[in-house]
């Protein structure tokens, strides 16, 4: 693989993101570097595992037609992925800029995208508004499959939805309306998602201090 003009553009929690070109196309290079705070053995095990599963999950998601960036290449030795570059803003950033009426269709279409993934047993693993890019014409693209995996367990799918709801609730006052729009989109593509939602409520009730008014009906 020949990489050109790699410039560091961002540092996430897990990886460093570089911008470069590969065969004259703009690409993103996502490299997972060792973490000093983790035991080297744990670190190695996790980084290798996530690099591989991210590549695998992303390419399967792409195959079934979900809106995710396409994977161009993988380098195990230097632990990086080459990914198609996506223009746009993080959903987290757009939430402050757009009115609820414009956010609703975004959440609905994000919901149907997640429904499509779950319908095909693809689990995202870290589904939050920080891992969705909104392109032109409000099209959501799901990124960062580092914690992703293939599983048909309801529990895993419910975890995805619960993670999404919890982060949304933490940062957005109108979370309940947006989440129900998201859920409508989810169920429209994946009717069996009813069970996922029931399981999500069960997981939530296992946690500590869930006030009655906070429980989802």
């Amino acid at each position: 693989m020949r990489l050109d003009k790699a410039a560091r553009i961002a540092k996430g929690a897990e990886a460093i993101i570089y911008q470069g070109t590969y065969l004259q196309n703009p690409v993103i290079i996502k490299q997972r570097l060792p973490k000093t705070y983790r035991h080297p053995e744990i670190d190695h095990r996790i980084r290798l595992h996530r690099l591989r599963s991210e590549a695998k999950v992303m390419s399967i998601a792409r195959k079934i037609g979900a809106s995710v960036p396409s994977l161009i290449g993988i380098n195990i030795q230097e632990s990086y992925l080459l990914i198609e570059e996506i223009d746009g803003k993080l959903l987290y950033e757009t939430m402050d800029l757009l009115p609820i009426q414009r956010l609703k269709p975004i959440f609905s279409s994000l919901g149907s995208q997640i429904g499509l993934l779950h319908c095909n047993d693809i689990i995202h693993g870290d589904l939050t508004v920080f891992n969705v890019i909104i392109q032109l014409e409000d099209k959501p693209i799901i990124i960062d499959f580092g914690l992703g995996r293939i599983s048909n367990e309801i529990e895993s799918k419910a975890d995805d939805i619960l993670t999404f709801y919890s982060t949304l609730k933490a940062i957005q006052p109108a979370s309940k309306i947006l989440f129900s729009t998201f859920l409508d989109g989810y169920l429209s593509v994946y009717p069996e998602g009813k069970n996922t939602y029931e399981q999500m409520k069960k997981i939530q009730s296992r946690a500590r201090y869930i006030a009655r008014e906070d429980r989802l009906e």
Partner: peptide
């Protein structure tokens, strides 16, 4: 502790 650290780093980065 590695799990707590990773969650903390993710929250910081967000």
């Amino acid at each position: 502790f590695a799990i707590l650290a990773e969650a903390t780093e993710r929250a910081l980065s967000c």
